[in-house]
């Protein structure tokens, strides 16, 4: 039953007894109090700072010739993706492999879900495989939490509906911190489809917690109800929303949202909410531009900005993603028996 909808990209490695001595890094003090990473909600500023500090060491490791350690040797990491993803899935895969874990990628096509297997069926099947860490992306909010209650292993939320995408917010924080030293007091404008964005929700939680001033910039059709109750400033005029911003975070506009339902057309969206030089000029001089990818060039961001290494951190976000996810895996492994 399982095999019908699951694509196994890597053979499972033969089971070996896990040696606890392999699990510990030199400074193996516990970092997270929870065995799961389900969202930014549940982390403290201290947790976040510790994770970012740890990630810095993995940035160094990722740039070395030998990028691999044996920290997670013998451990099994399953990437369970119910939604298509290139970036996040490969980032977790690489992070796991660089730490020596066995990584298995499972892409569950929605069709197999419609064949009747429920998420809990999936959970018990997986549990029987005895993974150590499950990375899950699902189209429904709360899916990662449901799995965490049913599985014995650690669960990392790689995106659940429009709820949270905590590793994205953490890697964004790592990227910003490397350029600005600190998150506190920074003005961060999150622009675009906030309504459907888990990236925006995780980012605004993390950034607010760390003392940044968050603004949401979007047409009213793409702003969630009561967004103003999150302690953020709301702007529908992008130029005003960008005025004085240190960081401009662009969000992806899903193609299916463009054709009239939430915005009338891509040309209108780009005219009023696409990041171009003219709008960026309203931000603080030297402001940096981020995007979680994949980008719609000419819809939410002009190509010349996306490709300008002086202002765009987009490639760096990908690099930080691997380092940050290595730090997460490390931190969760420290809590394991």
């Amino acid at each position: 039953m399982l095999a019908l909808g699951w694509r196994l990209r890597l053979p499972l490695s033969p089971t070996t007894a896990i040696s606890p001595t392999l699990m510990t890094s030199p400074a193996a003090a516990p970092i997270l109090s929870s065995k799961h990473l389900l969202g930014i909600d549940g982390l403290s500023p201290l947790d976040i700072t510790a994770l970012l500090d740890l990630a810095e060491t993995y940035v160094v490791q990722g740039r070395a010739t030998d990028k691999k350690t044996a920290l997670l040797r013998g451990r099994t990491l399953i990437n369970l993706f119910f939604e298509a993803s290139t970036r996040t899935q490969s980032s977790f895969e690489l992070a796991g492999k660089r730490l020596g874990a066995d990584v298995m990628n499972m892409s569950v096509k929605t069709s197999s879900v419609s064949k009747g297997e429920t998420l809990l069926d999936t959970a018990s099947t997986l549990n029987a495989m005895r993974p150590d860490i499950l990375v899950v992306r699902h189209q429904d909010a709360g899916a990662a939490e449901l799995l965490s209650r049913k599985l014995d292993c650690s669960v990392i939320n790689a995106g659940d509906g429009a709820h949270e995408h905590p590793t994205q917010a953490l890697l964004d924080a790592l990227t910003i911190r490397r350029h600005r030293g600190n998150l506190e007091g920074l003005v961060v404008a999150i622009c675009g489809d906030v309504l459907h964005s888990r990236v925006a929700r995780s980012n605004l939680r993390l950034l607010s917690m760390m003392g940044a001033r968050v603004r949401l910039v979007a047409p009213r059709t793409l702003l969630p109800c009561d967004a103003d109750r999150f302690g953020v400033e709301i702007y529908t005029d992008m130029k005003r929303g960008l005025a004085g911003a240190d960081i401009v975070m662009m969000l992806r506009l899903q193609l299916e949202r463009m054709a009239g339902a939430f915005v009338p057309s891509t040309r209108e969206y780009f005219r009023f909410y696409g990041l171009d030089r003219e709008k960026l000029a309203h931000a603080k001089p030297g402001a940096l531009v981020m995007h979680p990818g994949p980008m719609n060039r000419g819809v939410e961001i002009a190509s010349d900005i996306a490709d300008d290494v002086q202002v765009s951190l987009i490639s760096e976000q990908v690099e930080m993603g691997v380092a940050l996810r290595m730090a997460i895996l490390d931190a969760l492994a420290r809590g394991m028996a």
């Binding site: 009239g260 009338p264 040309r267 209108e268 005219r271």
Partner: peptide, 9 residues
């Protein structure tokens, strides 16, 4: 009555 027009433009 199906899709909104380009109100801004």
């Amino acid at each position: 009555g199906e899709t909104m027009t380009e109100i801004g433009l």
